[in-house]
Nucleic acid binder design. Sequence first.
DNA 1: TATTGTTATACTCTATAACTATA
DNA 2: TATAGTTATAGAGTATAACAATA
Lengths: 145, 145
Amino acid sequence: MDTSEPEDPGLVDALVQSSFVVIAALSSLAAAHDLSLTQLRVLAILRDRRLRMAGLAGYLGLERSTLSGLVDRAEKRGLLERAPSADDGRAIEVFLAPGGRELADRITVEAGAALAPLTAALAPGDRARLTGLLGSMLEPGARPR
Amino acid sequence: MDTSEPEDPGLVDALVQSSFVVIAALSSLAAAHDLSLTQLRVLAILRDRRLRMAGLAGYLGLERSTLSGLVDRAEKRGLLERAPSADDGRAIEVFLAPGGRELADRITVEAGAALAPLTAALAPGDRARLTGLLGSMLEPGARPR
DNA sequence: TATTGTTATACTCTATAACTATA
DNA sequence: TATAGTTATAGAGTATAACAATA
């Protein structure tokens, strides 16, 4: 018996469809600021963290070599900064430059507005219910892979 | 007053996070079959449709020129086929080749399995509730942009 | 020896612009 | 003229492999 079979194809479809809609909205928001979706994620991740290159790569699920170019470009645009780690002579820490922080804040607001057409489709009680259900679905240990 | 402000930042966060988790699972499923996420979407879209290049580009939100290369590669792999349209001498129709249909079916099953860790985190009643809430959120007219 | 980050290389994805063929 | 698709070109994103510096 394959216990990993889905019990509710309708839910899978709904999750996949809504995810594509949300990601498309975020991609278009990123594009409006001349960012890739990955760069937008970097800004969001570094909003309250300072990470080494390898740590950032881990968050994004990318190779370290990929981050080098990505951070290069963002650094040239004044969004990110690099600084050698005090603890480890090999490591480089990445964090938001002033311009990056400003943009990250702006994008946070705009993301809410971009998704408002979706969230506004629900009654207030349903919004809270949806938040709760997504929250329990994402609880530690429930992630795929 | 800015009426496009989000009324529930918690919901926005939950939607964004869950969407990234779902898309990451699908990307990794695509990668396991040597497909890009876009190619996986093409297989899903063409599963019950035959579209012109321009129509497919529209579904994906991509330029026609982008589709040319993408379909080229998938065609060489035996996943898609092209045929001139009977109605319009300029148009080319794209549809699943036998290999593409087989792969699309397999991927549909595997997507359910890949997301099972998420869906299984919910009680059956909650799964139905979540399906319903996502469904009403996606109702026509609610899409961003 | 192992790890951190970078560089070199290659391929895919994507867009813009120019082109051909058809409408 | 306008539309469908392709090609040429260019840039970003990504990975693998090889490398230098540090641990």
